[in-house]
């Protein structure tokens, strides 16, 4: 179905040649202009009631993440508890959108979320990184097994990485086919599917033109979300890159009526930064995108800064790091 749409948009059978023609025919990106626009959006002044609303929105859009080799079931349980009750001193604080973990940690996350898990009637999703995250350097067979394994364990969302090597050497159909295959592997026994987030690792793509091409390629191949980074490569998410990806999903929506989400991940640590992203989302793709189905922050330390800011707005004074839980 999604492949049919891709065929319509590309206007040809999907081959190396037609995909190449399509992505190379996309309009260019002027780096200076893009960065200037992002800088202008960053000057918006979000105060008082707008700030209060923004902070709550940010919490509800966070994929609370732990992606360490040192992760343990205990660490994941603790993360899940924080996802359910971000601020124990304020029951009015919204829950986060998802917890994001490695595939082998999915069962612990599902168990720890309990009734708060989307699968059990709650609203918090479990996202798993897959496809030999973060490098993606494994055979397709391994990547698909990695994905299917996480889905079987109860993951609601799969964060895959694209093959940047193939992309940079111009093998676009290889990148495309791989995403299509992973999307297929997201399918569950009952016919439903885990949502697929496609990580472009923009820090390795190096140019904005490449980011635009990779975004289109991922969306054509069926991505539900396009995501900037693994968080393991610097630079991770930046405002200009996110702006550019938002322009792509906006254009895709205009063209097809379909909605695709965007997830900047890595490097967004302060509320102030996150508010700039909200502004960029609302003024580029539209306010409709300020919804967990269409926008996420991949972050670990951001949540605590937002909680501190919320406390400050409520009480009128700043508390400190010891007034929010570490995980």
């Amino acid at each position: 179905m999604s492949i049919d749409l891709a065929r319509t948009v590309v206007g040809a059978e999907l081959s190396e040649r037609s995909l190449r023609g399509f992505v190379l025919g996309l309009p260019g990106v002027d780096a200076v202009g893009l960065e200037q626009r992002a800088a202008a959006l960053a000057t918006r002044s979000i105060k008082t009631s707008s700030k209060r609303r923004a902070l709550d929105t940010i919490v509800s859009l966070i994929d609370l993440t732990t992606l360490e080799g040192a992760d343990t079931p205990g660490k994941v349980r603790s993360l899940a508890a924080k996802a359910v009750l971000p601020d124990p001193s304020d029951a009015g604080c919204p829950q986060v959108a998802a917890v994001c973990v490695y595939g082998d940690m999915v069962p612990y996350a599902v168990e720890a979320l309990g009734a708060a898990h989307a699968g059990a009637g709650g609203s918090i999703n479990v996202a798993a990184v897959a496809t030999a995250f973060p490098s993606g350097r494994a055979s397709l067979r391994v990547k698909l097994a990695d994905t299917a394994d996480a889905v079987a364990a109860g993951a609601d969302e799969i964060d895959m990485v694209i093959d940047r090597g193939a992309f940079l050497s111009g093998r676009y159909s290889e990148v495309f086919d791989e995403i299509v295959a992973v999307k297929e592997a997201c399918r569950r026994g009952d016919g439903t599917s885990a949502h697929l987030k496609v990580i472009l690792e923009t820090g390795e793509l190096s140019t904005y033109d490449n980011v635009r091409r990779a975004s289109w390629l991922a969306i054509l191949a069926g991505a539900d979300f396009i995501k900037t980074s693994t968080g393991k490569v610097s630079p991770a998410a930046t405002l200009p890159v996110t702006l550019l990806m938002l322009e792509v999903v906006r254009d895709w929506h205009r063209l097809t009526g379909e909605l695709v989400g965007v997830k900047p991940a890595g490097g967004i640590r302060s509320s102030k930064d996150a508010v700039r992203y909200l502004v960029t989302v609302a003024e580029t793709a539209g306010e409709r995108w300020l919804d967990p189905h269409l926008f996420r922050f991949g972050a670990s330390s951001l949540l605590n800064d937002v909680l501190l800011q919320r406390q400050k707005l409520a009480s009128g004074h700043y508390s400190g790091a010891d007034y929010v839980t570490i995980d």
Binding site: K47, S49, S50, R53, A282
Partner: peptide, 10 residues
């Protein structure tokens, strides 16, 4: 009120 109705920031 929507998010885009930014509160006055004079």
């Amino acid at each position: 009120m929507t998010f885009l109705d930014y509160a006055p920031a004079p």
